[in-house]
């Protein structure tokens, strides 16, 4: 109990620190006191513009996107009783990406700023309908996984087809860069568009704790303990689609956060899904904020993509975890 709470507090502090760091670090090289004063009071023209229109949305989106990825990863792992599940598993990320790619390819994204995130949200919506049609209200975990794989494959093929047939090399470049995932150059408009969906999705996922706890003992035992599995599955799919769809819409595909964060935190909170959910939201936020600060520090001139860094750091870290697990099991 207390250990779980201690971890949550520590993670909360870490997130706050990183959020501040995200506000204070950038190519403009603003003074610490100036920038905070500008942010709060709105005094000092250029500084206010940088803080409120560039850094604040970036930090807020980092916080939300990270929390969404960590939380939905933990929820899906809990539901599928499998530590390899990740937010993209039910196909939402790939269909949202396909929606965004179509917006980029058709030039809609260039014509009006919100076309891309809106198209991505529509893509996420399509995946929910497909999942529900394929995995049904009574479908089990396996049906859900297989439906997710099929939808991801289809959306991936669609994206490849767009790239393949694209006559416009600039659109191709733009699509490829967008798919790497980034928080650079986002505005408050992105925040207002994405935040309601991400917050609503997270609110849904956070209600699942007790049901996921019971699922630790299997579907039969959970149902006999009063868990309504059909309802749980609906809430899970809807929450994940809202939250992850919106996160892809505003930030592109940021990999490995939803897989690694719950994995790292599980032993620290005593493995119960109800404690892992909030901890993973905080852990995901910390990881994305840290990575987003890091891309600005490592290569300020080169626009290193956030998704590239999270995968570059996340994958070896994951390998290390597997290595350690193998040793314990041997």
């Amino acid at each position: 109990m207390t250990r779980g709470r201690g971890i949550t507090l520590a993670l909360g502090g870490l997130v706050m620190g990183l959020f501040l760091a995200s506000l204070l670090i950038g190519p403009a090289g603003l003074g610490l006191r100036d920038s905070l004063r500008a942010l709060v009071t709105g005094q000092g023209e250029a500084v206010v513009l940088i803080m409120r229109e560039i850094r604040l949305p970036r930090a807020v989106l980092g916080l939300l996107v990270g929390a969404v990825l960590g939380l939905s990863g933990a929820a899906l792992q809990g539901f599928l009783r499998n530590p390899l599940a990740e937010p993209g598993l039910i196909g939402v990320s790939s269909t949202a990406a396909l929606g965004a790619v179509l917006a980029l390819q058709t030039g809609l994204a260039a014509a009006f700023a919100l076309a891309l995130p809106l198209a991505a949200l529509a893509g996420a919506g399509v995946s929910v309908l497909l999942i529900l049609a394929l995995a049904g209200p009574r479908g089990g975990a396996l049906a859900l996984i297989l439906a997710g794989i099929a939808i991801s494959a289809l959306a991936g093929a669609g994206t490849s087809l767009v790239l393949n047939l694209s006559a416009n090399p600039f659109a191709v470049t733009e699509i490829v860069y967008w798919m790497m995932g980034s928080l650079a150059d986002r505005s408050m408009l992105h925040v207002w568009l994405g935040a309601p969906f991400m917050l609503a999705g997270m609110a849904l996922l956070l209600t699942l704790g007790r049901g996921l706890d019971a699922l630790t003992l299997g579907e039969d035992a959970a149902q006999a303990m009063g868990v309504r599995l059909t309802r749980l599955r609906w809430v899970l799919i809807l929450g994940t689609a809202l939250a992850v769809g919106a996160s892809v819409a505003v930030a592109g595909a940021v990999g490995f956060v939803g897989l690694v964060v719950p994995h790292v935190l599980r032993p620290l909170v005593g493995a119960m899904p109800s404690r892992l959910l909030p901890a993973s939201a905080l852990g995901g936020a910390a990881m994305v904020l840290a990575a987003d600060v890091a891309v600005r520090l490592i290569a300020p001139e080169q626009d290193l993509k956030l998704g590239v860094l999270t995968a570059l750091v996340g994958a070896p870290f994951f390998l290390h975890l597997i290595w350690r697990m193998r040793k314990v099991e041997a």
């Binding site: 009783r81 003992l217 299997g218 035992a221 005593g270 493995a271 119960m272 899904p273």
Partner: peptide
């Protein structure tokens, strides 16, 4: 209360 067949514990809980 129901005890299903097998000893299925998904996570290393206390």
């Amino acid at each position: 209360a129901f005890l299903p067949q097998g000893r299925d514990i998904a996570w290393p809980v206390g």
